[in-house]
């Protein structure tokens, strides 16, 4: 029997690279379960005939996006040194998933999804964009009092979900966008919705999540 006081909660920050761009949220959960199985760490499983590893992803990333910062919690039946955990996760990760950090989290902390406050993104366009035009589109969005949109048959106001939006030069010298969007339960802004409002479709760009903001973070 596992001693209750030995149960350990681990938080991992990791990347989701281009080769995982089209791996959806449920597939990421399965991918993580298998990654954890491969490590041989004392992963905590559910009971029953089809035991599942207990894990918790902070925030679903829309299909087609990449990310420099995703968060996941998992539980172990016994503690292990953090550098051992980091090494085993890194050794067993598929291409595109790089372990950035590993830390121990208090068992009593809220679930990651509950702690989510906001996400930051950068947008890279396939075709070179004019900085002026992009800035004009940005200011149109930011100066609107409300942006009423329809998604999955529901009408909502996109404007209050946008914390910040800027046209900015990227590393390769091209001009792209940075976005800071709210990401709370029931109030999550989607970059593709902002981009659609600006007149772009999903074949025009690649979105990368750069940071997650947690309640206590």
């Amino acid at each position: 029997m596992t001693q209750q006081e030995n149960i350990t909660r681990i938080r991992v920050e990791y990347t989701k690279g281009p080769s995982l761009r089209f791996t959806g949220h449920l597939d990421m959960q399965r991918l993580w379960e298998r990654l954890l199985r491969r490590t041989g760490l004392p992963i905590r499983y559910s009971q029953g005939f089809h035991p599942r590893a207990r894990l918790n992803l902070a925030s679903a990333l829309p299909l087609g996006f990449i990310s420099q910062s995703e968060l996941l919690d998992f539980w172990m039946d016994q503690p292990r040194p953090l550098d051992e955990i980091h090494q085993k996760l890194a050794d067993n990760a598929p291409a595109g998933l790089i372990i950035r950090s590993v830390q121990v989290i208090d068992l009593s902390e809220d679930a990651l999804q509950v702690q989510m406050k906001a996400s930051e993104f950068t947008v890279r366009f396939f075709e070179t964009q004019s900085q002026d035009l992009l800035e004009q589109k940005v200011s149109e969005i930011l100066s609107s009092d409300e942006i009423i949109r329809k998604r999955r048959k529901k009408t909502y106001d996109l404007r209050p979900l946008i914390i910040d939006l800027q046209a900015e030069p990227l590393e390769d010298g091209q001009v792209g966008l940075s976005m800071h969007l709210r990401a709370e339960e029931g109030a999550t802004g989607r970059p593709d919705e902002v981009l659609d409002q600006m007149g772009y479709t999903n074949t025009d760009y690649i979105v990368s999540r750069t940071a997650l903001t947690l309640e206590n973070g």
Binding site: S19, L20, R21, F22, T23, G24, D27, L63, G64, P94, A95, G96, N202, T203
Partner: peptide, 13 residues
């Protein structure tokens, strides 16, 4: 790829 169903079929990795 973003225009087709289940693009993850075509990327390998």
């Amino acid at each position: 790829l973003p225009t087709v169903v289940k693009p993850g079929r075509y990327v390998g990795g």
